[in-house]
Amino acid sequence: MAVMWLIPLLWAVYTSLRPKADTDRYGYFSIAGRFDLGNYFAAWNQGGFAGYFLNSTLVTIPTVLLTLFFASMMAFAVSRFSWRFNTTLLIMFTAGNLLPPQVLAAPVFELFKLTQLPYSISDSGTLLNQLFGVVAINTAFQIGFCTFVLSNYMKALPLELSEAARVDGAGVWRQYIGVVMPLTRPALAALGTLEVIFIYNDYFWPLVLIQSGDRLPITTAINNLQGQFLSNYNLLAAGAVIIVIPTLVIYLALQRQFVAGLTLGANKG
C-alpha cells in the first residue's frame, strides 16, 4: 500500500525534473535525457505561486487555530463535566459532519451576499470575496470533527486531575488552560496536521466564495500552468510538487505528535 501511494508522487517528481523536449523525444517512460530544476522555476514564475501561497497561508493558519480553540473548549465542556445537554450538543456537533458542504453551497453563497459589512472591513461590502469569509465557513465545518476527536481524547484523561484542581481552588478556565490542554498536545498536534492538510487542499469553498483571481488559494494556481491548446505535463508536475511541499513539511515536523495522538488508547497500562 505504501508503494502504491508513493508511485504517483515519485512519478510526478521524476517528470518534473525532465525538460519537455526530452520527454517529447524519448517518451515519458524513458530515462534518457537530462534532469534539472528548470520546470520548477518556470512553474513558480508563470503560476504566480508566491501570491497564492500567501492567500493559502492567510486562510489556513487562522482557520486551524480557531478550529482547535473552539473545538477544544466544546470538547472540554462535554467531556469533563456532566450536565443536561452535553451529550445532545456532542451529537449535534458530530452530526454536522454528515452534511456534505456542496448541499449548503447555494444558501451559504446567498447568506454571504446578503450580509452587509462596512467598506472599511470588506471592500465588497459583504462577506463575499473576502479571505476571512473562507476562514469562517471552514472553521464552522471543521469544528464538529475536531470536537468529536478531542472529546474522546479528553474522556480518556483521569477525572481525578480535574477534581484535584478543583480542591486546590482552580476554576473552570484554570482547569481548561492549566490541566487539560497541556495533556491534549498529542491530539492537538494530530488534529492540527490533519486540519492543515484539509484546509490547505480545500478547493470548493474558495471557488464558491472568492470572486477575485488574485485572492484564490494555491490549489487553484495549477490552472495558470495550463496552455490554451497544449498542456506541458512536466510543468504541471513541477507545480503539483511545489504545492504539496508545505503539507509534507508540516507532517514531518509534527510526525511524532501525530503518531502519538493516533495511538492513544491503543493499549492499556
Rank of each mutant, 00 (worst) to 15 (best):
V241L: 09
L236P: 09
S56G: 04
Y153S: 13
I121E: 08
L264S: 15
A237N: 10
K268S: 12
A266I: 05
V59C: 08
V196W: 13
V103G: 01
G171W: 00
D36R: 07
N86M: 11
L6A: 14
Q211G: 07
C146Q: 03
D24A: 02
S122R: 14
L150F: 01
F141A: 03
E163I: 02
T263K: 14
S162V: 07
A77M: 08
L161G: 12
V64Y: 01
S30M: 12
L10F: 14
A32Y: 08
V172L: 15
Y251E: 08
L117R: 03
V59D: 07
A75R: 02
L17E: 04
R80A: 12
L159S: 11
W173T: 03
Y26I: 00
V103Y: 00
L37W: 11
M92C: 10
N223I: 00
P101K: 00
Y40G: 06
A140D: 05
S79E: 09
F148L: 13
G96Y: 09
L230V: 10
V135Q: 14
L127D: 03
A42V: 00
P217D: 05
A170E: 06
A95H: 12
W11P: 06
Y26A: 07
A156K: 15
I61Q: 14
G192K: 06
L183D: 11
A240W: 07
F148T: 08
N223P: 10
Q46W: 09
L207V: 05
N97S: 09
I143A: 10
F112D: 03
W11F: 15
G47M: 03
T67W: 06
I210H: 04
P19M: 00
Q46S: 09
A77E: 00
A71S: 14
L111M: 12
C146K: 02
L128P: 07
A105L: 05
P246C: 05
F81P: 03
S212W: 02
Y119G: 08
Q257L: 13
L225I: 00
A238R: 00
L157P: 11
P101D: 01
A140G: 13
S120M: 10
I242E: 05
L230Q: 15
Q130E: 12
Q226N: 13
L159F: 14
V103P: 04
K155V: 06
S120N: 06
I143F: 11
F35I: 02
A164D: 01
N45V: 03
N97C: 07
G178D: 15
S120Y: 10
Y153F: 12
V108C: 04
I7D: 10
S120H: 07
L150R: 00
L264E: 15
F41W: 15
S82P: 02
G265L: 13
V208W: 04
L37A: 10
L248W: 14
W5V: 14
P246M: 04
S30F: 08
M1A: 14
M73Y: 03
P19D: 01
A190I: 02
L254I: 09
A21L: 06
T67F: 13
F229S: 08
N55S: 10
I242H: 09
N152T: 09
A77S: 14
